[in-house]
């Protein structure tokens, strides 16, 4: 699912076809490392995750739908998916802008600002959550200017979107940046010399080249946003039916010992994430085919 990862793994694949008949390699340790990898992976990830699915399957369709798609749960999905989608769209625009500025222009402080883009990956989500809440609360640094305008951010879905923009930004920037850097400027110059306008060059030359990367970043940000918890719960207000996100509803149900509801909602969230994952893989397979052609 990683661009660089899947691309680089193509290299040894070629060597593989050559050596398939012979004993693979004199390098030792395959059995040991593979055994450990599979064992640890099963123990930590696969078995616990399948426990969730088995538990959901135990419930029966009627009960699953009753608790997994209760009015409150559906409202929470809408809030989670809606805000994650909005944030991913905003990030697609500003993330592309940031990537463009970092790759194409020189300005003082660029390196530091570029490093700062990874802040959301490094800053614990709870810290981001309380900081954003402090800023956007009605007497906060930004909130106090928005309040007279009638814009409430903290404790509304808008606040959730703001938190998810913070969380998702690096996904887009880091997806698009390397592709943009690889883009040969000769093609653009050729387009310019043929009389194209800057916007035409962008729409017809640059955008098609970076679309797979942009979509990958978008899907990664979307998947992360749907499951995000820590940075959101402080700024969200967490009002059922209005600003309650699905991950928080899982926690709430757990605290009330309603394991069935928690399991069902978690299963729906997990399936949504897997759909996003599948989408990413499809995009990358599609873009690889396009490159090869």
């Amino acid at each position: 699912m990683d661009i660089a990862l899947s691309r680089e793994l193509q290299i040894p694949a070629k060597a593989a076809s050559r050596s398939r008949r012979r004993p693979q390699s004199i390098i030792p340790g395959f059995g040991l490392t593979m055994g450990f990898t599979l064992g640890w992976l099963s123990l930590i990830v696969l078995l616990p995750l399948s426990a969730l699915f088995l538990r959901a399957a135990d419930m029966g369709v009627a009960e699953f739908i009753a608790v997994g798609f209760s009015d409150r749960a559906v409202a929470a999905y809408k809030v989670s998916f809606g805000t994650a989608l909005t944030a991913a769209v905003v990030n697609a625009f500003f993330g592309l802008l940031c990537a463009w500025v970092f790759v194409r222009y020189e300005f003082p402080g660029k390196k530091v600002l570029n490093a700062l883009v990874d802040l959301p990956f490094a800053l614990p989500t709870a810290v981001a959550g309380i900081a954003l809440t402090a800023i956007y609360s009605p007497n906060g640094w930004i909130g106090q200017w928005l309040e007279p305008l009638g814009i409430a951010v903290a404790y509304t879905p808008t606040g959730i979107t703001i938190a998810l923009i913070f969380i998702g930004l690096p996904f887009i920037v880091r997806s698009v940046e390397p592709v943009l850097a690889d883009l040969s400027e000769e093609v653009e110059e050729a387009a310019f010399s043929l009389g194209a306008q800057p916007w035409q060059v962008f729409v017809w030359v640059i955008l098609p080249a970076i679309t797979p990367a942009l979509l990958t970043g978008f899907a990664l940000a979307l998947a992360r946003g749907i499951g995000e918890h820590g940075s959101v719960i402080f700024i969200a207000g967490n009002m059922p039916f209005r600003s309650e996100i699905a991950p928080l509803l899982i926690v709430t149900q757990l605290e009330q010992y309603d394991y069935a509801a928690a399991t069902a909602i978690a299963t729906v969230l997990l399936l949504a994430s897997f759909a996003a994952l599948l989408l990413i893989n499809l995009i990358q397979a599609w873009s690889r085919r396009r490159i090869e052609r």
């Binding site: 990830v45 078995l47 995750l49 538990r55 499951g227 995000e228 991950p247 899982i250 997990l270």
Partner: peptide, 23 residues
């Protein structure tokens, strides 16, 4: 196998906690 190793990145942290509670 690589996709499976990457899997935890696409699981909501809350769901990650929940699976261990269920076990």
């Amino acid at each position: 196998l690589i996709s499976f190793i990457d899997l935890p990145f696409s699981v909501s942290p809350v769901v990650a906690g929940l699976i261990y509670v269920l076990l």
